[in-house]
Design a binder for these strands. Sequence first.
DNA 1: ACAATGACTTAGAAACTCAGTA
DNA 2: TACTGAGTTTCTAAGTCATTGT
Length: 730
Amino acid sequence: MSESEEEEESEEDGRVTKKKVSAKKKTKGAVPKKTTTKAAPKTKRKPALKSKKPTVKKEAKGELPKTALSSKAVRIEQAMKAFKWWDQEPLPQGIQWRALEHNGIFFPPDYVPHGVKMLYDGKEVELPSDLEEVATFFASMPPDGPQLGHPDTRKIFVKNFFGQFKEMLKDKLEDDLGIKDFDKCDFSPIRAHLETQKMIKKAATVEEKALVKAGKEERQDHYGYAIVDGRIEKVGNFNMEPPGLFRGRGMHPLMGMIKERCLPENIIVNLGPDARVPPCPLPGHAWDRVQHDNKVTWLASWKENVLNGVKYVMLAASSSFKGKSDMEKYDKAARLKQCIGRIRRDYEGNLGKKADREAKQIATAMWIIDKLALRVGGEKGEDEADTVGCCSLRLEHLRFPPPLEDGGESSGAKQYEIELEFLGKDSMLFKQTIDFASYGENGKQVFKNLRHFVKDKKPEQDVFEMLTPSVLNAHLGSLMPGLSAKVFRTYNASETLQNELPTVEDLAGMSVGDKVVAYNDANRKVAILCNHQRTVTKTMETALGNLQERLQLLKDQKKELLGQKELLKSGKTNKIRTRKDDVLTDKAVKAMDKAEDLRKKAATPEEKIKASHALDEAKELKRQAQAAKAKDAHLFARPPTKEQVDRKIEQWREKITKLELDIRNKDENKEVALGTSKINYMDPRISVAWCKRVEVPIERIFAKTLRDKFVWAMGVPPSWRFEGTSKPEM
DNA sequence: ACAATGACTTAGAAACTCAGTA
DNA sequence: TACTGAGTTTCTAAGTCATTGT
């Protein structure tokens, strides 16, 4: 790869020299770019940033990459990559950095009033700009989304939103404009306005889009990097969250509350004592305060008004801060693997303890967390959605089998089954029937314990009334230093991946594509273990429906082809249906040209809207043309030979098999999210080593950002296994 | 003791991008 | 040569857990 040959050229093992840093300070500050003035170099810099793409293409074509003139972005990336934090001397306990420099936060622009009026009782209402803004927040909520699309959540959302909206009316105007009833409010004019704005944006010319992109890149250049102990690192969320309406998940009691605009006055900036303080980007404003706390990794923080929690600007997932703790997390999980036997014996031994209810609850909870991969489940407040984990499970979340008729023992397999049904993190449904008997004697004991714990309890009472995460974690910590409940999920996920991945022998003779499928199968097992779900969106549903339709069409076409074969055999060639002239496509193309023309000439918003309508119509024509074409795709222009028909039948057979596989995969995956476990739970070294062993290029498994995030894992040998190496068993 | 807070990880949805394709 | 849909990135909410405050 070109990396190695360029490595020596990169900035001294990734370190930006002192000289360079201070030089930057004088001009623009911490940003890793040499821009001196705003406008002038802009045009010059653009091609440099763009040069990234051609380089890649040339490389792909086998040409030599240009080493001398690598773009700024590429050079920064190389500098970041060249520094191998995992080979470095660690900083003292609790110290996160010695020097830290960054450029602060980007703030979204002020609200620009659009003047489109909402209706009340059918009449337009004149709103001051800050109220118009809030009305616009509401209008921008998708009417069929997770908040407004469901009657229960909609009720909460509307109550919160409208309560505050009315409050604002009262505060801002002495007269509330008579707005009292939400049902008389009509935000649809604003919604329509937003919709057309979106269309206009989508229909923008290439140049306009390029301009937007350039602006984004400029922002990335300015805010997107920090200098940590002399090295360049990527910043994660440097954009301040824009104001809007709080979108809680599930039945969040606060959904619909106004999330206020956050200004520099609310920001604490954290950086090194010697670092240049980033200038506040909003004229006339100032940071709340600047601090130099090197015990923490964040660059800036603010208090958010809805949940009253602190939010942070932190480095990106590819940074050394995140990388270090990620590696520690997986090392800890591997350490758990070393002593998992002892820990399981600990809780198994305590499951049947007669006298000690607390020990029994701890043991039972540990079993659940270990075997069912539940989260620990902290207590939740009044102002939060009612979701639970292990410690907060209530009797109402457990469905025991019906009691046996008058002492009749063992009435069947259902005896030890419990249906668990509750909402977990993000209000994701957990619904599984657990057959405790399938886990052997310990499983049966857990079942008995649960029945015992809930004896004489009301549905809304906790199953583990003696447990809290602190109690549980205190016990876990006594079994292994640093052990807490969440480590079990990491451990079990990684262990499952390793065990589920096929061996080199299993994969003998398979294509890379098939190996990737095998990897995804293992990944899916982990995702299911961790209950990583995604809701089937409407777009996905329709996409699946379209595929089904397409499959049916292909099948019908194949049938006709088989019929044609028979006709050929019996010499009835004249009965073979041939393809008709395609007139629709021509029509569509013309309409398209015309719409394009309109768009080019359009200057005023009205004309632009008109052009976009014309485009829509042309698209519809095109869709029709394509549908018609697809319908006859299997037909020949003139009566075919037998060979031609045979060839086409074979083609169609392949198409059908491929599509059927595609549909099956999509269907299986539609409600499982593979990404979460890949990003957060499976030790990347397992995947890297497996890829090396079975000769699958790592980029087939990890996309760019994941490769960056997991740089520290890329060097493991093919033989690497997930099993604790350091730290002996206690 | 235990409630509140702070810092950080984990999470799915939404927005965006880009490659395959008609 | 624009479209489409899959894949990726961004966004920010919602967890965990140790520390701090009362």
